[in-house]
């Protein structure tokens, strides 16, 4: 945590930073535990080629969206429209392949990301300029984008045969046993983590989330930063939409509906505080892996299909309660340390 500019609370912040890192270790441990237990029950979960691939592959798309969500939540906002953005971008991807088959497919990535970024820009502009809470705005665009999607798609459906093989192969191929999709997601995660942790803009996002008014008084460009956070979230949802098309091969008008709760859930499980200012994109990424892996592990562990949602809900609650208890302890310890140093 670079705390050069803050002096009064410098030590406090850096300690909180290291605590946050511990939190991610805890989530990672939970993830490893789930994989270990499930693998003990059924070795194929990890040791068959398909099992290993799916373990890495399935959460990749959610991970991208969760990283974008984390960036937004860190600024004390939330983006509920990601599922609808993902759906629209996935359909756009398919549509491009149907209508412009001559277009080289890597260009589709650029279009999908740019399109998602535009939708994110709409969210961001409404939030940043109109000063309306993001929960409300993105709830509105959740409806509106989905409506546009259904209206545009109708009962059309993009099938695997509409898309070029090279593009579809991205969804399933591996390089050195690691799926391409996962590599893309990790690359994005790396960039986001680097920016959020070392760059001025990233640190400012944390500052804004900790105390928007103070950030404004301090002279940070709050409006612009928040706008950028939404554009990033939109762009990543757009990218996720393109990858969804590659991975699942069929796109209809309901792609990605309900994804917003999983993305917020992944970020929260990963230790991104819903009130902004703390957490990391790493945490959100691990949260996504934990969430999706638990989903896949439950049937292997013999938990009836119907109870899966209940388990996921209990996990989200468990994660935030644990967080809260740990944070309360931490605050007490700081208080003791402060008293000790004053004496």
């Amino acid at each position: 945590m670079s705390a050069r500019t803050w002096n009064a609370s410098q030590t406090m912040l850096s300690r909180l930073g290291s605590f946050a890192r511990i939190r991610e270790v805890g989530i990672l441990a939970a993830f490893v535990l789930v994989v270990a237990v499930t693998t003990a029950k059924n070795p194929n979960f990890l040791f068959s080629p398909d099992g290993f691939r799916d373990l890495l592959l399935t959460p990749s798309i959610l991970m991208l969206v969760a990283v974008g969500q984390a960036v937004v939540i860190i600024t004390r906002n939330v983006d509920l429209s990601v599922g609808s953005v993902l759906g629209l971008s996935a359909y756009l991807t398919g549509r491009i392949f149907v209508d412009f088959p001559s277009l080289p497919w890597p260009l589709v990535f650029v279009i999908g990301i740019a399109f998602g970024a535009c939708l994110g820009l709409v969210n961001g502009a409404l939030v940043a300029f109109a000063k309306v809470p993001s929960l409300v705005i993105t709830l509105g665009t959740l409806y509106a984008y989905r409506g546009i999607n259904v209206w545009w798609t109708g009962s059309d459906r993009i099938n695997a045969s509409d898309m070029p093989d090279g593009f579809l192969a991205l969804g399933t191929d591996s390089v050195a046993n690691i799926p391409v999709l996962t590599l893309i997601a990790l690359l994005v995660l790396g960039c986001a983590a680097w920016y959020m942790h070392t760059q001025r803009g990233g640190r400012e996002l944390y500052a804004i989330g900790s105390d928007p008014d103070a950030a404004r008084l301090y002279g940070l460009r709050v409006t612009r930063r928040v706008l950028v956070a939404f554009v990033v979230s939109g762009a990543l949802a757009g990218l996720a939409g393109v990858l969804y098309a590659a991975r699942y091969g069929t796109v209809n008008s309901q792609v990605g509906s309900g994804f917003e709760l999983e993305a917020v859930g992944a970020a929260v499980i990963g230790g991104v505080a819903i009130f902004g200012g703390s957490g990391s994109v790493f945490g959100a990424a691990i949260g996504a892996y934990l969430l999706m892996t638990i989903n896949r592990a439950l049937p292997v562990l013999g938990v009836d299909d119907f109870w899966q949602r209940a388990v996921v809900g209990a996990l989200i609650l468990g994660a935030i309660v644990l967080d809260r208890i740990a944070a309360a302890r931490q605050v007490k310890r700081f208080a003791r340390m402060r008293e000790a140093s004053h004496d």
Binding site: L261, V268, R309, A310, I316, L317, I320
Partner: peptide, 9 residues
Amino acid sequence: IGTLALYRG
């Protein structure tokens, strides 16, 4: 968000 999933589950 947690109890949304829990109660529905």
